[in-house]
């Protein structure tokens, strides 16, 4: 291992890591918004929208992100919808993640039986109070493990961004291998940077999961 080489190209990796995290976060935020909307539509059983949402969920869950990105990035411009690579990355991640987030949220909401809402309403709570004090605390606790797993999953999926020529970590590593044949060093840095990004998220996720595990008494 050549330490000098690694130090020299450290800034390149840093830049790439920042890009990966930034687009990852944007994508996760989009995914979360899409997920909340879809989950509410399905939970509220809104007639037509519900069908559309379930078609979307099936399409997004049963196709790989790489193919989704290729379609958005190379396919859509042909019918006049063009985006730049960054927006495309975030949108693709949002499209993929939306369905996963929606399933996580819906599974949380659905574990709360209607009797709880009815009881809360008959005790005189207002609808928003029912949501705030009865439904959400339980739903969040149930959804949290799936939710954290999705965030890690989506951050990992950002690794395919190099396919649409975003200069992310994979792109940087491949570039350096091609240019200087410093395979070991480039791959080592790649692994280290992904660990720096993903390990804290994974650890924080576990802590949060443990803290919100109050819903399942006796389980």
């Amino acid at each position: 291992m050549n330490i000098d080489f690694m130090l020299e190209y450290l800034p390149l990796y840093e830049k790439a890591a920042v890009l990966t995290v930034r687009i990852g976060c944007e994508g996760i935020l989009i995914a979360l918004s899409v997920g909340v909307i879809c989950a509410l539509i399905q939970y509220g059983k809104i007639p037509v929208l519900r069908r559309i949402v379930s078609v979307y969920i099936e399409l997004s869950r049963n196709t790989p992100l790489l193919v989704q990105l290729f379609f958005i990035y190379y396919g859509l411009p042909k019918i006049g919808i063009s985006t730049n690579a960054e927006v495309c990355g975030a949108l693709g991640l949002g499209f993929l993640g939306g369905s996963y987030m929606s399933e996580a949220i819906r599974s949380g909401l659905e574990t709360i039986e209607p009797i709880q809402t009815e009881s809360a309403l008959s005790l005189g709570l207002k609808p928003y109070q029912v949501m705030r004090y009865v439904i959400l605390p339980q739903a969040v606790s149930v959804s949290m493990p799936a939710f954290m797993a999705n965030i890690i999953f989506l951050l990992k999926e950002t690794s395919v961004f190099s396919a649409i020529s975003l200069m992310d970590l994979m792109f940087t590593a491949k570039d350096l291998i091609g240019l200087y044949y410093k395979t070991t060093e480039s791959l080592f840095m790649l692994v280290v940077f992904y660990l720096i990004i993903l390990l804290p998220v994974s650890i924080i996720g576990r802590i949060i999961e443990r803290r919100v595990r109050y819903a399942g008494f006796g389980a």
Binding site: S159, M170, A173, K174, V191, L195
Partner: peptide, 18 residues
């Protein structure tokens, strides 16, 4: 589990030659 699968592919594909 924590490594993206693409990273693992790179490690095996490019790393094996080395």
């Amino acid at each position: 589990r924590i490594m993206p699968q693409l990273v693992l592919l790179f490690i095996v594909f490019f790393g094996s030659a080395r």
